[in-house]
Design a protein around this nucleic acid. Sequence first.
DNA 1: TTGAAAGCGCTACCAA
DNA 2: TTGGTAGCGCTTTCAA
Lengths: 350, 350
Amino acid sequence: MVARLKDIAQDLGLSVVTISKVLRNHPDIGEETRKRVLKRMKELNYQPNFAARSLITGRSWTIGLVVPDLLHPFFAQIAKEISVEVRKKGYSLFISSSDEDPALEQEEIAQLLARRVDVMLIASTQWTVESFRRIEEQKIPYILLDRQFAGFECNFVGVDDMAVGLLATKHLIEQGCKRIAHVRGPEISTAIGRLEGYRQALAAHLMAPLPGHVISIGPSGDHMGDKAGYAATVKLLAGKNRPDGIFCFNDPVALGTMRAILDAGLRVPDDIAVVGCGNLSYSDFLRVPLSSVDQNSKMIGKIAAALALKLAQGKTPARPKSTLVTPELVVRASSFRANQRPEPERARPS
Amino acid sequence: MVARLKDIAQDLGLSVVTISKVLRNHPDIGEETRKRVLKRMKELNYQPNFAARSLITGRSWTIGLVVPDLLHPFFAQIAKEISVEVRKKGYSLFISSSDEDPALEQEEIAQLLARRVDVMLIASTQWTVESFRRIEEQKIPYILLDRQFAGFECNFVGVDDMAVGLLATKHLIEQGCKRIAHVRGPEISTAIGRLEGYRQALAAHLMAPLPGHVISIGPSGDHMGDKAGYAATVKLLAGKNRPDGIFCFNDPVALGTMRAILDAGLRVPDDIAVVGCGNLSYSDFLRVPLSSVDQNSKMIGKIAAALALKLAQGKTPARPKSTLVTPELVVRASSFRANQRPEPERARPS
DNA sequence: TTGAAAGCGCTACCAA
DNA sequence: TTGGTAGCGCTTTCAA
């Protein structure tokens, strides 16, 4: 049914080897022969059999990507970018969504390993590093995305989370906020980094979190973030040091936070300014347009794809390569106080 | 490096064939032998080589999915659902994003065909049916998602777009709207179906679109929908028959529409009620929470996955199977007028 | 410049 | 119940 090298060889009275060489642009083929072969290939709409090729070369021309949630725009953007970039080089991308479930993630990694993907990209939900060891055993190169593991050296591409926390918190300080709280995420590197940035930004202005002003949304990861954010903020507002600025772990959380503030009869940003992270689409259309730190997910995808392609070609760097992408603050109404000078430096003109 | 059947056979003094049979749960294997083999497989963490298996069986245990835009929550949800469902049965899913570009889509289809996927799922951006013919030539079963082609019979799973238009428009009528406009999408089945539903709902109430009240966002597909919706609505408001209700092709368009209305100093829903389609996440958090027709994308994904698995097992239905999922209206503030009786029937109590 | 032979890891078929 | 043989479609190696 489908054309094979053998068919072309017979049609043209040549050997299979010759056809195979033409297929791969091998140099030592006569110009005349090459043309005849290419013509026949086109006529038959010949497509090489990847399975047969993989069996010999040991390469599958396939890349695997595992994300916690494909519905999350951050991961969707990364997936899209990687898919487009690697396809240009002839690779196809397996994508699977682990639903924030570590057990499911392990299964998916195992399945992709069994398929002998040439590279694996993982935005992991794991708590331990164990499953990555298993990938290493199989000698399949891999890249971690977004979430890191303390003291574990490997290829990594993600946003500079400390910079995220710094940017957001510094901005709130500049807007005149004096009591800045942080609704933090679970015990993963992203949340830890953002918390650290928040702390450092405060410290740089000789401030520190007030008691109860660092509050966690619990282990809920990203989905249900709005509900967790709402609950956390209700607690925050009930405490005695009511904050006048809140930096939220991510945008869904920030949505919950804003709703809690508005439900309490307070105003955003006048009473409490809010900054999130992720810069989700449609931020402009919210009840109060949300200021947010953009993680530059497109760039993360591009860089990850480029690194993946290198690894796929066997170009393993001497040491694992870690790339931190610079985040960018997008100021909208939720944190912009017109009566404040946006840049404190300008308070003392020279 | 990686264990093969041959290794296990040698270790145990058995033949490769025996091991292969154990692997596939072939019945005629001694209980004792089976146990020994399974034990050794576990010890070596044996993983069958898919390439070798595919080469013989002609099946790749692989499914291909092409969507216009993975960032769009509708397609992301479908992709996620399909990925999860087919993985349960041992299939892996290639996902690629065509960026609403027909040429790119064709390339991606070609690449997946070359990989001999067992089934192909496509939410197409094409204007013609040509590339599907090519899939048929290769005898690879396929399913169209979301968008149909008039007079072209094939496996299809999508929402009932006429019902979408009916639901939305009927609701606006019940909210007391007298001059209902429609910001329609491009010339694809989804937009055509929704327009038809809109028309029918009006006709059922002895109404018809006023001149200029069906306006198109142009060929822009889904991305940039908000800008196109804004522009279309500005025109709508400038005309002489200002609408008091607008049914929008999708949610991004509806966001643009709402912004245009608010920018014009009018109120939503008091002056103009708005309904979208897609029920995007965070609708609750918008400036005016958006009423929207939910396309039940999760169900579309589940049904598509089930059909794909059947097709992958060679169970081709006698006739192509087309499934229309029932949409559901979610009423929020953008279209709810408290002073209107929601159900006109109740206006005349018995 | 061309091609014969070997074999990648596995499964199908049939014989023992 | 077990296993030998053949071969899937291709690439690699080496000889002509």
